[in-house]
Design a protein around this nucleic acid. Sequence first.
DNA 1: GTCTATAAGGTGATAGAC
DNA 2: GTCTATCACCTTATAGAC
Lengths: 220, 220
Amino acid sequence: MLQVAFYTIDQKHMILKKTPTEEKILLSAKKVFYQKGLKGARMQEIADDAGVNKAMLHYYFRSKDKLFDKVFEASVQSVTPVLMHVFLEESDLKSKITHLVEMLIDLFLKEPYLSNFIINELSQNPEKLFNNVLHLEGGVIGKIIPLINEQLQAEIERGNIRSDIRSAELIVNIMSLCLFPIMSQSVVQKTLGIDDERMLRFMNKRKLTVTQFILDAIEP
Amino acid sequence: MLQVAFYTIDQKHMILKKTPTEEKILLSAKKVFYQKGLKGARMQEIADDAGVNKAMLHYYFRSKDKLFDKVFEASVQSVTPVLMHVFLEESDLKSKITHLVEMLIDLFLKEPYLSNFIINELSQNPEKLFNNVLHLEGGVIGKIIPLINEQLQAEIERGNIRSDIRSAELIVNIMSLCLFPIMSQSVVQKTLGIDDERMLRFMNKRKLTVTQFILDAIEP
DNA sequence: GTCTATAAGGTGATAGAC
DNA sequence: GTCTATCACCTTATAGAC
């Protein structure tokens, strides 16, 4: 329900609409760009995967760069609503943390290449952060950290959380613990010497252990 | 001192030796490959950066792939000795954690693209993990986790550490907290809206706060 | 909208003179 | 060892028939 799919708006009926071909191309483009990046991806490979002619890619999206941008925008928009939802929900800080960890691990476990894709692209084009992320949701995203900070200070005053915890740092730590293991999944998996199934269990178990790890770290 | 540089062994004198041109190429190749990856990098750009003719790259390294492999090997070898050194030192677990966090943040802060580079490359070619990492140091690396596990169990029995902490998970968490913020540095920096200098301070301060965060999380 | 054929430009790699 | 010139190939993109 919070998922945002690829779409174009039909000017006449204002209905979400897209041709099957366009949809197939976008799904294949996502698959290939996620794994190989902008430079590594081949238009031919995307066309083959979608089962359409290569010329169709240019007919619908003009150029490789524009197709990539569409995929990138959609990837960002598949994440931000989830984050917003958790950060803005009415609940105490510890519930938010629990919820956020679950959401992050669930979301990025479904799309293992997503975090790498976004981080790599934003590293090479940092200006995209403004166009695609920080301006989203009416700029509300930039106000999340002050908001969390406020809630954190209140909890500190109540004595529920250590006084030396900083909101920016806490958020960075939560993101780190949830995303890094997924970004480096192949490395972790081979280093631990476990198969796909055990790796999935390891990651799913982390929804609990990471939450516990964080709560233990911030409690007085 | 733990740094491992690019080198070739002079057969006659068994001395580390390399021509200035070769060295310049490798340094420039490192710079360009780190930032743009294998597919994004251009041989011409590497040559320009090194101030040598493009043909020289092929004279010394035959192909782009072989040049890339040299850079990748060197990148891995700039990390593993540091990790080994910390993991194998004779000290209690908490000292090791403190030391490891400092080392990781210092090392990867000096080379901000290094972690992204290694993770991305290993994600696309997981078999390189065996050739370049797990086989290193006589395969000792695979024995680190059991070794840490042993030390962890001893500390748990002494009541110094929570009984539900697992060694694999602890190592993954430490790596996450140290590396992810550096991998996503541009995103974090722009989201927090701070300049380069404050970002550097933020990261350096993390050497203390991350250590504290981890120790608080694992204490009973 | 979909296809084939082809243009246009760039990239890794090599031959050969110095 | 170093340079220039050039090849062979690949990739994006487009023109034009259907």
